[in-house]
């Protein structure tokens, strides 16, 4: 339990502020991602979840505050900076080309070349290996076009793509939003597996069942502030999480056990 707190976070944001014009969206936000854990980011619409995630992605660079990666100060000024740190994103509306097949999508923009030409067999093997190590059994062939895959399979491919690049942190934005029950389960199992393989996983979600089932920690945002950073234990209830989202406070014991407990 406390061991996870003792280890240094892989990614740590401190006192982050972000404004769009006169709208102050993020107020002194602290956020931590640990390797080997799923950290869920929850909050109501407009709470600042997606702005926070986009600031990590380099899409909306922060105005002030600190970002530390493995204990070192870093600056994320653009998507390239994020990619160089090994931070990968899986977007809600899938970033896949339906006309291309699984391998082609997984390597899109980073194709392997041999003598100046596409090295198709090496890419195919790598795609297969990656899917196999993730225990993906739902995609029958890596040569299928994305068009022929189900929503869950597509999400699986999108996640596998993020993992292919020796990434350290994978950020998933509502990965189960458009999926059925069985497919949601498959994707969540995959999310869990990513963390078990040592990656830092950030799950942005509205779905408390999803959050409860895979998360190690939950960071809750409320009106642009980080309202709570709690560990998910057996005693954590859905009602507590909903309380954090709707009022920024934990039902029962308000304002205690928020961030800042690691001295």
């Amino acid at each position: 339990m406390s061991t996870s707190l003792a280890t240094e976070p892989l990614l740590e944001l401190r006192g982050v502020n972000k404004s769009f014009g006169s709208v102050h969206v993020l107020h002194d936000v602290d956020f931590r991602v640990h390797a080997g854990q799923v950290t869920s980011l929850i909050g109501d619409n407009g709470a600042g979840k997606s702005t926070l995630v986009k600031s990590i992605a380099g899409i909306h660079p922060i105005d002030s505050g600190e970002i530390r990666f493995e204990g070192e100060d870093v600056a994320i000024r653009g998507p390239r900076d994020a990619a160089e740190l090994g931070i990968e994103f899986v977007y809600q509306d899938l970033s896949l080309c339906e006309n291309l097949d699984v391998v082609q999508n997984m390597f899109l923009g980073r194709e392997r070349l041999r003598r100046g030409l596409l090295d198709k067999s090496s890419m195919e093997q790598a795609a297969r290996d990656t899917l196999a190590t993730l225990g993906v059994r739902t995609v029958k062939s890596v040569r299928q076009p994305i068009r022929s895959l189900s929503g869950g399979q597509r999400q699986t491919v999108a996640i596998a793509r993020a993992v292919l690049w020796n990434s350290r942190i994978v950020v998933l934005d509502e990965p189960t939003a458009a999926l059925g029950v069985a497919q949601t389960e498959q994707v969540l199992a995959l999310v869990r597996r990513l963390a078990d393989q040592g990656l830092g996983v950030v799950l942005v979600s509205h779905n408390m069942n999803d959050v409860m089932s895979v998360s190690d920690r939950v960071s809750a945002m409320y009106l642009g502030r980080m309202a709570a950073d709690i560990e998910v234990t057996a005693s954590t209830t859905k009602e507590q999480l909903v309380g954090l989202i709707t009022s920024g406070q934990r039902a029962g014991n308000p304002t205690t056990d928020t961030h800042g407990d690691d001295t």
Binding site: P79, S95, G109, R110, L118
Partner: peptide
């Protein structure tokens, strides 16, 4: 490959760099 990607989903291609 990128030509097909842009034609298939320009936004996905852009996100892929």
């Amino acid at each position: 490959r990128h030509l097909y990607a842009v034609g298939g989903n320009a936004e996905a291609a852009r996100r892929a760099g």
